[in-house]
Amino acid sequence: MDAQTFKVRNKDGNIVEAELLERTTFNGKDIAFYSIDGNNDMVDIYASYIVKDNEGYETLQDITDEETLIWAVDYINELAEMGE
């Protein structure tokens, strides 16, 4: 199955397309890693909590917990570091 894409509004107020890289869990919480095209052939990688709303749909929420944030940074860095 193809990679999942969805629309997000960036900090400049523009709606841009994000691509889900991975859905995983850390400390019992669901985490989404997704990428958004940046400038000049660069890509920004984001991490967010996945939280269910009242109707059962899932939304993304900012990660505020430091431990999770550090884990997320390490996780992506380790994957990037593996190289080819």
Partner: peptide, 28 residues
């Protein structure tokens, strides 16, 4: 992610973990 079908944006965009060149994204 089970996002609402009609949802065109998510207001809480999350944290940038890093910025990488596109080639590196493919590696990831």
């Amino acid at each position: 992610i089970n996002i609402r079908p009609d949802q065109i944006h998510i207001s809480d965009i999350g944290r940038v973990i890093t910025s990488v060149p596109r080639a590196l994204l493919n590696t990831i």
